[in-house]
Design a protein around this nucleic acid. Structure first.
Length: 855
RNA sequence: GCGGACGUGGCGGAAUGGUAGACGCAGCGGACUUAAAAUCCGCUUGGGUAUCCCAGUGCGGGUUCGAGUCCCGCCGUCCGCACCA
């Protein structure tokens, strides 16, 4: 065995050996217990990001570990290959989205291979290939046949200059990212999936997901947003009725005005005759469509002059059109209670409307003024007629009961969850398989004609949807009447692609999306791993899609992901230097010489800096560099590192080890050059240790045996709970113990165990060393057995406290009874010194842990 | 704005309500070496009148024999918000 482990040679050698032996190919017919380990598949942006390395290393360790425990493991990989970046590349660089994407996939696949992941590449899928999206179209038609797909009008961000629909991320401060034009909300007829039909199920289902993080379940619960409230009607002064919904019927006596959304029919009809109202509605249409934008915008309103008769007091309340009322939630109209809703409070303050208290902590506080903000909390009803004195919950029920008795309203459950709009006015996505016929209306493409494929010859020289302006593609004959008709030119949201890919991984027949029998065998995914940023949308859509397929009888499984883990981001320091502006910049930005002394802050990449002791300098110029905050790696801040370069310098095992070390996997992991060097040193340290394996060594070393068995048991637990950083710490400890131990059979056996323990984490090093043992591939080895009798210690160190403060420790036999422990503690010299003859008031004894003497 | 999380040495972190700082990184000292690298050994929360004592887990309160952990109120940071993936 050579003294140094050479990753450059070993990585390639063992990756080839695994390929050759097809170690990681999942056998659909295996009799072994199954484990489906899945990491969220990547968008093929071109290069693997270090965050991917972290994600896939975690999954890989688990997959390899499960194999060692005798499981048949499905660990697949694919590409979420549709989406905007490919179109942006097409517009920016003049390349075809398909060519660009496929090239990226080839590059990233090679990068993943260099990291030595135990993936079943025979099941690789790319969502942009007709072999995948054709099946998606078929599933979409199945949902359509079962009434789960429909069309309705919905708002999009419209760029009036580029004449195109913008994604939310393309709207910056209310303006289009390319044109700079003020964005408008415009309505288009679009395709929707009836996720709201499943709102109850999706909410209920969360209860069974006990292996999901609590926070993700809470976020989904809030997102679905079930609320029980009251829907009721105001009689308007113009003779019409206005239906409103409220979650707080208990505050009805505090209503001081009524507000409707800008696109509410009442607002529209006012606008017909009142041009100020029409102008106001136009004003409301400015800006983007995101909730954050709508809710942080200044509260604006327009008094329609209409009065709404309060159903209990009979008083007339003014009706406003308000920009903070959402048409999509409830009825698009609200009763506003400024005292107990912050938005209403701000609005009332601005427009001088009454703010009255109807909830208070107690009856005596009925007259208490507000402290500059609404009070949304609990309490009892005050100034509220027949519900005075009732707690909030009781007040709600009483008001609903009265409304129902008098016929002007009723209790109603309302969901925050909206139906899923899947139409995208873009090229690089799954074509929606429908045809618009003037005679027959909207007609599905017959399944035998699937897939509807994207045309290759498209023009990205102007903004907008290339499908819509393609000269021939959209012309198709109506499948029903045969007359010339028009193809749907919208494509599907890419979240649809990622809502069923885990099913296709488990089974991929040519003639249908999947084989239900195989789905039943592999699903649910035993462990799903990905970023927290997918906590709501992707995970909710995938749950919905799975349930929808179950409801229409395509599969049995209802929840796709049995256990979910959300990993943290990889972060890095930022480096900046200040430099004076160039002549060019002075000219372009119009800086005068006086202003030009203000220097420009420029980011540097980790490659462009060097450390000399504590200080950091720019390599090229030697100027001092300012070290900034540790933040998420991003291209704009240049604080990125390239996994390929790391692998080339330190080897795959070192970067894998770094990804698992130190930070708990759910938290952020700060990348550091020093850290990766430490990992590379540990790889070599293990190599030297493995080289000391001596099958002929004799003699027993109980302490080493004990440590080895304890570590095997603990690391197994840590891996199963994805506590990789804890497993890493234990492996360091075991390595330290073995290094200090004298040669013995126990020591050699401990070295063998250590090798097996690290093999899921550093598979190349482990193979290289295991090869010298002559026992085949470690990838096919079994996890070491644990002797339970070696797990327990016979002595323990207990803490001796006086008044909860540590004063000493004592080593005692494990399991010593309370009385003896108390005697040991009281006899302790330091305790005696502190007590100085006094009798303890009380003694608390926790066996094997501590004794606390209360003096 | 709404929803969700997080906060412990110089840094990443460990700690079923029971010895705070395991383990790693960085740093310092030493051994080996002509020298360097590599490797090995030791030290490393702060303060003090230093074999000992005091303080200490973002801040302020509380529960408890005992709180990093539980409760209440702040402060700070991060993530999501439906057309980024």
């Amino acid at each position: 065995m050579s003294d140094r482990f050479d990753p450059a040679r070993a990585d390639i050698r063992w990756q080839a050996a695994w390929d050759e032996a097809q170690c990681f190919r999942a056998d659909d017919n295996s009799p072994k217990p199954r484990s489906y380990v899945l990491e969220m598949f990547p968008y093929p942006s071109g290069r693997i990001h270090i965050g991917h390395v972290r994600n896939y290393t975690m999954g890989d360790v688990l997959a390899r570990y499960k194999r060692m425990r005798g499981h048949e493991v499905l660990h697949p990989m694919g590409w979420d290959a549709f989406g905007m970046p490919a179109e942006n590349a097409a517009m920016g660089k003049g390349v075809h989205p398909g060519g660009w994407t496929r090239e990226n996939i080839a590059n990233m696949k090679a990068q993943l291979k260099r990291l030595g992941f135990a993936l079943d590449w025979s099941r690789e899928i790319a969502t942009c290939e007709p072999e995948y999206y054709g099946h998606e179209q078929a599933l979409f038609l199945d949902l359509y046949e079962h009434g789960l797909v429909y069309r309705k009008e919905s708002a999009v961000n419209w760029d009036p200059v580029d004449q195109t629909v913008l994604a939310n991320e393309q709207v910056i401060d209310g303006r289009g990212w390319r044109s700079g034009a003020l964005v408008e909300r415009r309505k288009l007829s679009q395709w929707f999936l009836k996720i709201t039909d499943f709102a109850d199920e999706l909410l209920e289902g969360l209860g069974s997901l006990d292996k999901w993080p609590e926070k993700v379940r809470t976020m989904q619960e809030n997102w679905i947003g079930k609320s029980q409230g009251m829907q009721f009607r105001f009689d308007l002064s113009n003779g019409e009725q206005l239906e409103v919904y409220t979650t707080r019927p208990d505050t009805i006596f505090g209503a001081s005005f009524v507000a409707v959304a800008a696109d509410h029919p009442v607002a529209q009809s006012v606008a017909m005759t009142n041009c100020d109202a029409a102008k106001f509605i136009d004003l409301c249409k400015q800006g983007g469509t995101t909730a954050a934008e709508l809710e942080t915008a200044e509260k604006l309103g327009f008094d329609t002059g209409i009065g709404a008769k309060h159903p209990i007091t009979g008083e007339y309340l003014p009706v406003f059109i308000a920009n903070f009322v959402l048409m999509d939630y409830g009825t698009g109209a609200i009763m506003a209670v400024p005292g107990h809703d912050q938005r209403d409070f701000e609005f009332a303050t601005k427009y001088g409307l009454p703010i009255s208290r109807v909830i208070a902590a107690s009856a005596d506080e009925a007259g208490k003024p507000f402290d500059g903000e609404a009070e949304a909390g609990d309490g009892i009803c005050v100034n509220s007629g027949f519900i005075d004195g009732m707690p909030v919950a009781e007040g709600k029920a009483a008001v609903i009961a009265r409304a129902e008795a008098e016929g002007w309203g009723e209790g109603k459950t309302v969901w925050r969850l909206r139906d899923w709009g899947v139409s995208r006015q873009r090229y690089w996505g799954t074509p929606i398989p429908f045809i618009h016929c003037e005679v027959c209306g909207v007609v599905p493409v017959p399944k035998k004609s699937l897939p509807v494929t994207l045309p290759e010859d498209v023009d990205f020289s102007v903004p907008g949807n290339p499908l819509a302006r393609h000269p021939t593609w959209k012309h198709a004959d109506c499948p029903q009447c045969g007359k010339p008709a028009r193809r749907e030119t919208d494509t599907l949201d890419t979240f649809v692609d990622s809502s069923w890919y885990f099913l296709r991984f488990a089974s991929q027949p040519d003639d249908k999306p999947f084989d239900p029998a195989q789905i039943a065998k592999w699903l649910p995914v035993e462990q799903y791993i990905g970023g927290i940023e997918h906590a709501i949308l992707h995970l909710l859509y995938a749950r919905f899609w799975t349930r929808a397929l179950a409801r229409i009888g395509k599969i049995e499984v209802k929840e796709p992901f049995g256990s979910l883990f959300t990993q943290g981001m990889v972060t890095h320091e930022t480096y900046t230097i200040n430099r004076p502006p160039t002549e060019e910049e002075k000219r372009v930005f119009g800086w005068t010489d006086e202003a030009a002394h203000e220097s420009i802050t420029q980011y540097l990449s980790p490659n462009e800096i060097e450390r000399r002791g504590e200080q950091v300098f720019e390599k090229a110029t030697g100027r001092p560099v300012k070290v900034g905050r540790v933040i998420k790696m991003s291209k704009s801040k240049k604080n990125v590192v390239d996994p390929d370069e790391i692998v080339a310098t330190y080897g795959a095992d070192a970067i894998r080890w770094f990804m698992l070390s130190d930070s708990p996997p759910e938290r952020d992991l700060p990348w550091s050059e020093a850290g990766i060097e430490g990992c590379a040193r540990f790889v070599q340290r293990l190599w030297r240790l493995f080289g000391q394996f001596d099958a002929s060594a004799e003699g027993e070393d109980k302490a080493v045996d004990r440590k080895a068995h304890q570590t095997v048991a603990a690391v197994a637990e840590d891996i199963e709970s994805l506590g990789f950083n804890k497993a890493v710490a234990r492996i360091y400890e075991l390595a330290g113990v073995i290094e200090k131990a004298a040669p013995s059979a126990s020591r050699s056996e401990a070295i063998r165990k250590l090798l097996l323990l690290v093999s899921p984490m550093m598979p190349h090093l482990a193979e290289e060393a295991y090869a010298t043992f002559g026992e085949g591939l470690v990838a096919n080895a079994m996890w070491p057995e644990v002797d339970p009798s070696l797990l327990v210690e016979d002595e323990v160190t207990i803490a001796i406290q006086v008044n909860g403060k540590l004063r000493d420790t004592e080593v005692v036999a494990k399991g010593l009874d309370k009385g003896s422990l108390e005697a040991v503690a009281v006899a302790n010299a330091k305790v005696q010194a502190i007590l100085s003859g006094a009798t303890p008031k009380k003694v608390i004894v926790v066996p094997d842990r501590l004794v606390n003497i209360v003096a």
